[in-house]
Write a protein that binds this DNA or RNA. Structure first.
Lengths: 226, 226
DNA sequence: GAGGAAGATTAACTCAAGATAAACTGATTA
DNA sequence: TAATCAGTTTATCTTGAGTTAATCTTCCTC
């Protein structure tokens, strides 16, 4: 289930979009301007933004600029009036984005949203996204908001494995085999220790959890889709 | 218009890729193995290679090695089966490269190609701007305000490489291969020494930093947009 | 509720990876 | 031929990821 944030100051358009999104199975969040949008994004995970260009307070361009400056490459579907299109779209529509001309057509909007989400998913292939938390496989890094930490290899791979298959129970032996290698000499207690360290490291992260299954092993639990 | 060389022994995959590339506006060249690829590259300008790892005659690794030995840092998009994924840390995917997991998705491939070409272009511009700091590739010079220093070659190239791909982890081996050449005899400790010298040289520069990733290598971190 | 097994936690240990300093080499130049 | 400089090597010091071991806690069973 994806969370889509609609940033739009016109009440009736906003309402219309809400209906479209809900009937197509998306979660819907709403803001009336850029500032509100940023606030909502602080407290909610957002997969995509539908953004009206013309707005009071902080307009669409400013919001986009703000987001990109923070290296947030969330996909943005811009909505613009026809006459504004040519001149402006050049510098603001980046690779992850798309745009639509008002008035919006239901089918078109859903198609574009689908395409954008699909692309975002591809780009994040080397990554795991859990709520607002990103696990980046290539850099062994866990990022939440502007908090970022690089984990030791074994710890990272362990966490990545568990969260790649949420709810699946792994025995200590399986984990040893997959992360340490089949012929590792090390005792399986070292898995305990690593799990312990991970739990401590992320104890204030509500997005996921490592659960012990007594007599069997561990499983990763994701709580991002509530 | 870019020339893209597909090196792939499977006929149908090759055909598929040809169609994908043509419909997306790229020129297409094809080879069935590494040797053929080298021949084609003798007579054609190639901007990017899409390379299947598993091939007869000269496989993907060997071709890459051959190319890098000649200091050809043409971007390579490797195609690999999932279980071979773990290999990528071992020093074959170099800075200019990316990889995809089979089976390839059209959209994904085009996205990755675009990204690689974009980066290659940036790198070939021969200047890097980080905050107020300019790295000038042609004169091996680093400039900040009215402070200017020319670095020894190896030091400069090392820094330039790391900062061209910020956050990307390079193993010592990769750095050796790309800067010293594949067949260099020198021990990888000399990388340590150069990193050390760079760190000392720029210790009061807040714009960038070289971070050690224990067990893997180094990465450049840019702090210009904070 | 006593006893024992599974797991958690803590702290200490080990050793390879990396950092650092300094010496060495070979090329270039004065 | 002395001086300088880039690059390399060697030797030594430091660090921290990973492991081990010891102890504590929890949970299940009789």
């Amino acid at each position: 289930m994806f969370n889509i944030l609609v940033v739009e100051d016109d009440k009736s358009t906003k309402k219309l979009m809400e209906v479209i999104l809900r009937t197509n199975g998306y979660n819907h969040l709403a803001a009336s301007n850029g500032l509100e949008a940023l606030e909502i994004m602080d407290s909610h995970h957002v997969d995509l933004i539908v953004l009206d260009i013309m707005m009071p307070k902080m307009n669409g361009y400013e919001l986009t600029k703000e987001l990109r400056a923070n290296h947030d490459d969330i996909p943005i579907l811009m909505v613009t009036a026809k006459q504004l299109l040519e001149d402006r779209k050049q510098g603001f529509i980046v690779g992850t984005d798309d745009y639509m001309i008002k008035p919006v057509d239901e089918e078109e909007m859903i198609l574009r949203i689908k395409a954008l989400l699909r692309r975002a998913k591809i780009v994040s292939e080397h990554q795991l996204l859990i709520g607002k938390v990103v696990l980046d496989y290539d850099s062994l890094t866990v990022i939440r908001d502007n908090e970022q930490q690089m984990l030791p290899q074994k710890e990272f791979y362990l966490l990545y494995k568990l969260l790649s298959y949420p709810q699946k129970i792994f025995t200590r032996l399986q984990l040893m085999d997959e992360i340490w290698g089949m012929d590792s000499e090390t005792t399986d207690n070292t898995v305990n220790v690593h799990i312990n360290r991970l739990r401590k490291r992320f104890e204030n992260y509500s997005e996921f959890e490592i659960v012990t299954v007594r007599g069997l092993g561990y499983k990763g639990v994701r709580k991002d889709e509530e």
